[in-house]
Nucleic acid binder design. Structure first.
Lengths: 301, 301
DNA sequence: ACGTGGCATAGGGTTCTCCTGTGTCAATCG
DNA sequence: CGATTGACACAGGAGAACCCTATGCCACGT
């Protein structure tokens, strides 16, 4: 019941000769002979009739052939998949991506990578930074891009650049001058990433600042998606925070303006990977691309 | 690259634990551990993350899983097929059948066999006796029913019963009294089984008789199917030969009558099987059914 | 602090795989 | 008609794979 046995059987059936099959498989004729014989004796079934001049499948062999072919095809596909992962000639590079990754340069990164290695598919798993970090930490993902800070000890963290975070409102009166943390805590807030709550890195920075002054940040409304939050803000339901990349994108509704914090607040985007696990070539290469695309060392955004 | 490795991988991925997989597979945990490790080292790819408390698939493992499942499914199907052939609990009994087998008791034979062994499918390959004999001789088929005589030395031949062969015509004037071979040779004949020609057993008997008297049998028209021949006969294109089973069946056109030969001619139906090859239980059982259904030893009808 | 669950490692026995070399048999060719 | 060729079986031996038992390690829960 080994794959070699089924492969020998299939090739022998297709070529009509043990000798030809042996050449095809790169082994010797006695080996093919024995593989098939073992398959036959294992189940007490004759699969071939050994004519003196040619080989014929029995009815039992005819029944077995399609299943054997399925096994062999599966084995070839599996083998190809495993080799491709090592070869940059196929397969998939899987990469975790912070949820707002779309707003940065990532689409062009993928474009360039795909131009360089057209046979490698790219799978970007877009989650919150918290979840990306957890997935990389457990090994489900090899690497990813996240917003700092993150807690995990077992990750290699490479900061890439930072993006300033602004206070956003539809009321111009509240955008007159840079926001203090006290003003922020008093504001009617519409926050997003409800599922992750205060584990979200940007929120954690704000919570830490508030704590230093004995304050607490509390959201009036929490929604899941930033687009929903901005919609509410534009209709005057409250204020929120956005990073520059989003503020300058087309997602930003008309009539919503931004103002910086008094003490400037930054999202730091970093690449993370597991500390111990080896990286596949495709992932390694994708990480190199990501590093190379960053304009400089931690520019201000 | 063995099936055991893929099976261990699949079960471990599904159960989330090497230990559980080992119990599932009926082997020990170190064995599972080694099988997976070998699979990983074979291709230098990590498939699982061994968490202290839990096993997690890597991205590479996720890619491999469907292919591995295909291999395992194919192996299970193959194994079941091979066991079924030995067990009378499934699988297929393949049987060669003379072309006119339908006109005998065969349909009821199949019915009874199927009632006894509902899980065994029956595949009747209906060919001319010549071809059935050749297929059984080479081993492509395990057994079959044919009309004698056949040449092959390597066959075990068990005569079952015989069926008289008549001369058939649409012209009552030619059916007055039993036909002599000389009259037969002179008649305008419409014969069937064109493809096999004079290798057909019934034809061979007639040719042998003619040869004894220095005559030759020649067909005016040859067609492939007996139904076509009878159609021509009913329209007066010539005469032909039919066995009793056909003469009494609904296939026989109105207006076509039969008369025996002066020296009675019989088709002897026999069961044949290969001399050396072992028979599968299903085929052996089907042969027993066939023997049991014969009323007596070589009855005349 | 101790027991438990789960994976890794070590060492050994049995079987499988693959090789080389040789025998047999039938079909083909000079 | 004898020699050659082609294809499969058989024998014996080296190496690897598979599976086992026994044991160690580590994190978790009581």
């Amino acid at each position: 019941m080994s794959i070699g046995q089924y492969r020998a059987f299939v090739v022998a059936a297709e070529t009509g000769s043990f000798t030809a099959a042996a050449i095809d498989l790169g082994i010797t004729q006695p080996s093919v002979s024995e593989l098939v014989r073992r398959l036959e004796s294992e189940y007490q079934v004759q699969l071939f009739v050994r004519g003196p001049r040619r080989l014929t499948l029995t009815a039992a062999g005819e029944e077995l052939l399609p299943h054997a072919q399925q096994i062999v095809a599966g084995a070839e596909a599996a083998e190809r998949t495993l080799s491709d992962i090592q070869s940059l000639e196929g397969g998939v590079a899987t990469f975790g991506l912070l949820r707002n990754g779309d707003y940065y340069l990532l689409s062009s990164l993928i474009e360039r990578f795909h131009a360089e290695y057209p046979n490698v598919r790219v799978r970007l798993v877009g989650l919150n930074s918290v979840e990306v970090a957890a997935a990389v930490s457990t090994g489900e993902l090899e690497a990813g891009l996240v917003v700092l800070p993150i807690d995990d000890e077992d990750l290699v963290v490479t900061p890439l650049f930072r993006d300033e975070v602004f206070y956003a409102s539809a009321d111009p009166a509240r955008l007159q001058k840079p926001k203090t943390i006290a003003e922020f805590c008093a504001a009617p807030l519409v926050l997003y990433d409800a599922h992750y709550g205060w584990r979200d890195p940007t929120r954690r920075q704000l919570a830490a600042r508030a704590q230093l002054e004995g304050l607490r940040v509390e959201a009036r409304i929490e929604v899941e998606h930033i687009e929903a939050a901005l919609g509410l803000v534009s209709r005057g339901a409250g204020d929120t925070i956005v990073c520059r990349a989003i503020a300058e994108s087309s997602t930003m509704p008309e009539g919503v303006g931004v103002v910086p914090f008094e003490e400037p607040l930054y999202d730091t985007i970093a690449m993370i990977r597991g500390r111990s696990a080896g990286l596949s070539p495709a992932t390694r290469e994708l990480m190199r691309f990501a590093r190379d695309m960053i304009p400089g060392p931690l520019p201000q955004g």
